[in-house]
Amino acid sequence: MTLPLSPGLAQAGIALLELLQRHAMTAPNLVAGLPKVGGMPASAALSLAEVLGWLDITDAGLLQASTAGLKVQGAADYEAALRCILLQYVDAQKPDWLQNATYGRSRVLSFCPVGVWQVFVEAGLAGPPTSDVVDFWDLLARIARGLQQDHLLIIGREGERLTLAYEEARTGLKPQWVAIDSNQDGYDVLSVVSAENRAFLSIEVKTSRTGIGGALHLTRHEWEIAVERSAHVFHLWDLAAASPRLASASMDAMAKHIPADTGAGGWEMVEVPFAAFTSLFGSIEL
């Protein structure tokens, strides 16, 4: 049975660790002598500590913080402690809502229990996508995927960050990092056509560390979304050189490489070599 998590329970667990740092005691003495810890029943705080592996027992039967518990105690602040607790919780409990992390944080925040949602909020993980927030959600997604395709996610984020910086320099406006909230929208970044034209421009980002010898993979969903958009481009980032190179491919340029459906079948994904866009690549100063 999954242990319900909430800010109150997390705070009680942190208080328990602090208490044991000051006063050594056994588990029975803890429950009998202190009905509550951090505003919660001592038994609940003890259950959380046991589930997350925070406690070791000495030869004398006394409770002390384990390596996992010391990691929570050593967190820089409350938000950092909650983030540590969340990662330990999903690793230990494998809750059903964790699978949503592969689709972006909005799916997790929509489907996780209210108590867990509150922990995410208090941990500062539901706000602006600062680098540490993005890193946390990427790590959660990697845990959900069982660390599969980890390197592809890291490379993809590099390209998305470059596009964000490039678009802000080009337009003078801060673009929206769509992919951090959901990878189901069919594009990664939402910018504008130009500083003068504020019409939305959606951007799908593809990144390669092997230069023009690499290739991009475009799904049917991504292409169908692109066709529906009033203004859409593809940013292809070549990270093989000392300085990143960008090719901004238009819909017309990409359409030349989109296969046609044949018979009753339909294409689902197409691989397009970066070399097909060689003439478009140029070094970028950010």
Results as ranks from 00 to 15, higher is better:
6 S>F: 03
8 G>N: 09
9 L>V: 13
18 E>M: 07
20 L>M: 06
28 P>Q: 10
47 S>P: 00
49 A>P: 00
55 L>T: 11
67 T>F: 01
68 A>V: 07
68 A>Q: 06
69 G>D: 01
72 V>T: 08
74 G>M: 05
77 D>Y: 01
86 L>D: 04
96 D>G: 06
98 L>Y: 01
99 Q>E: 12
101 A>T: 09
103 Y>E: 11
104 G>T: 10
105 R>K: 07
106 S>F: 05
106 S>V: 09
107 R>S: 15
113 P>D: 06
115 G>F: 02
116 V>R: 02
118 Q>C: 09
120 F>S: 03
124 G>F: 01
127 G>A: 14
131 S>G: 05
137 W>Y: 06
138 D>N: 14
139 L>W: 02
144 A>L: 11
146 G>Y: 04
148 Q>T: 15
149 Q>I: 14
152 L>T: 15
155 I>W: 00
157 R>C: 02
166 Y>A: 07
167 E>Q: 13
169 A>M: 08
170 R>E: 00
176 Q>D: 10
177 W>G: 02
178 V>M: 04
181 D>I: 10
197 N>A: 08
210 T>Q: 14
210 T>M: 08
213 G>K: 13
215 A>L: 09
221 H>L: 06
231 A>N: 12
246 L>D: 07
246 L>E: 09
247 A>T: 03
247 A>I: 03
251 M>L: 12
253 A>Q: 15
254 M>H: 03
255 A>F: 02
256 K>N: 05
256 K>L: 12
259 P>V: 11
273 P>S: 15
274 F>S: 08
277 F>R: 04
281 F>M: 07
286 L>S: 02
